[in-house]
Design a protein around this nucleic acid. Structure first.
Lengths: 134, 134
DNA sequence: GTCCGTGCAAAAGTTTTGCATTTAC
DNA sequence: GTAAATGCAAAACTTTTGCACGGAC
């Protein structure tokens, strides 16, 4: 499914994703943000197309079913950021560490597995949730 | 939802999970494996209860909706294993690396985020799928 | 004019909930 | 006997599919 034509819907979805490169958006959030109600079907199709083309990443949510999406960052500033997802509140935090690169190399050597550098996820408990239930 | 009573269903589900500590099972796989058809509802409730009690982990699947579950390993042999999930075929591979511990410490320091050592996921492409589409 | 993209409705898949029945204690 | 666990049916939710219509080219 490769979308080649320029449509108003396509433009608006991509514009919104680009304006929110630092956020991880669910399909619902994308639809709610776009005032002139674009059909869910269209958003799903567009987003899946962008995932296939490698322009955005798809991250599974932990505490509920579904996924969130994020435009890939190509600036130096946001390079090599990883994801911390709180198992309790579902919050998604960016995390930078050059140590992950070593692991990526090791997986390549040990298992011949190619790790997608943009999609490394650590689940656990965020600062706030740690406070709340102790 | 705290299950306290001992029932046949509970016993069988836990027995099966324990016997398959090295596997990541979906709800469907658990149901199919247990000959005397235990209701899906019961399996969902039991599994969620075990997740809450911290006896098993819940890992989101990448290429389709849903989750898989695995009994926590407490033996030295399986300690500190992490997960490689193929974005293409959905295969889940175990991976050991002591380098992850450094990252866990760093997340604690930088972000005050407590990473669940049993739930570290690297998405990417497995050996076979790398071969298949080049 | 052709055919791709959209959006509605419907379907498919996963997980949760309500409720009557069964079972553990 | 009481309260908890089970399991069916139905609901809730997310995602996909079929199909007719509209718009891009």
């Amino acid at each position: 499914m490769i979308k080649t034509r320029n449509t108003k819907q396509k433009e608006k979805i991509i514009k919104y994703l680009k304006e929110n490169k630092n956020k991880h958006l669910t399909i619902q959030e994308i639809q709610n943000a776009l005032e002139d109600q674009i059909g869910l079907t269209t958003i799903y199709r567009m987003v899946n197309c962008l995932v296939e083309k490698g322009e955005i990443i798809k991250i599974p949510l932990d505490n509920k079913q579904g996924f969130c999406y994020q435009y890939k960052e190509h600036t130096a500033e946001c390079e090599s950021h990883y994801h911390l997802i709180c198992e309790e509140c579902g919050d998604l935090i960016h995390f930078k560490s050059d140590k992950v690169l070593n692991i990526i190399e090791q997986a390549q050597e040990d298992k011949k597995f190619f790790i997608n550098n943009e999609k490394v996820v650590f689940y656990g408990k965020c600062k706030e949730c740690q406070k709340n239930n102790k």
